[in-house]
Amino acid sequence: MASAELDSNVTPGQLRLADALKRAGILRQQFNWNFFTAPDASDTRPEAAGLGVAILGSAYMMVIVLVLSLPIGVAASIYLEEFAPQNRWTDLIEVNIANLAAVPSIVFGILGLAIFINFVGLPQSAPVVGGLVLTLMTLPTIIIATRAALKAVPPSINDAALGIGASKMQAIFHHILPLAAPGILTGTIIGLAQALGETAPLLLIGMVAFVREYPGAPPEGFFDPASALPVQVYNWTQRGDPAFVERASGAIIVLLIFLVIMNAIAILLRRRFERRW
């Protein structure tokens, strides 16, 4: 009610009518499921605005990030940890991976804009571009976590496998990787959670646009315009109508719930599969 009084879309007469209806028991309050499913709405209809497109867009991006960064990250880690020769190039790559993890995210946004949109010609505001940019951001996190997990597997396991005639590949894929899997999974989930909350790079690639249409089903949907959860929050805080402030608060809570769930899964996995040697 408080924010409705400030609202230019609602007249005092409408407010009084609402109060009367409520007293008469005709009007009731209920949980707004539409908030999760409806798309964004225009400035004049804050009550209709929802997170539908943003949740879908974020989900699409997470799928892209997971599908790209997990295999590439794990493959890169295995190469660096088990196969790479010790030379200047390897050192250089290692230092750069550590540095990449600390690069401000807006820089990745500029990179995505320059490469994926201007050079490759992918559409603006599309989850595919957002996913690619977030993949670049998540890769260092996953590589660092995976290498730590691989390193934590005792060398005696490798010796044991080689000692009975397993090839290097067999030792890695049959023994070392499965033992490192919980650590890799935990790192991946934390990387994904980080990517889910990332806003700055998405602003630069146009995901801040007002999107009313749901993106289509994948894979075509990856190229349709979509929003993302943190960007939606940013977007709503910029709107004139005070009702959007409430929307923004609700969206932040939704985003935080997703992050808490993902981190909880990571902690549970670590607890469940942690191994002491």
Binding site: P154, I157, D159, A160, G163, I164, G165, A166, H175, L179
Partner: peptide, 26 residues
């Protein structure tokens, strides 16, 4: 070669799998 010349190490290093799986793997 390593299948023909097996090795037992200083510290017992069974795979963290079942006894059965340990033997059958090789």
């Amino acid at each position: 070669l390593r299948a023909r010349v097996g090795m037992v190490f200083q510290k017992p290093n069974p795979f963290p799998k079942s006894i059965y799986e340990n033997i059958v793997y090789g």
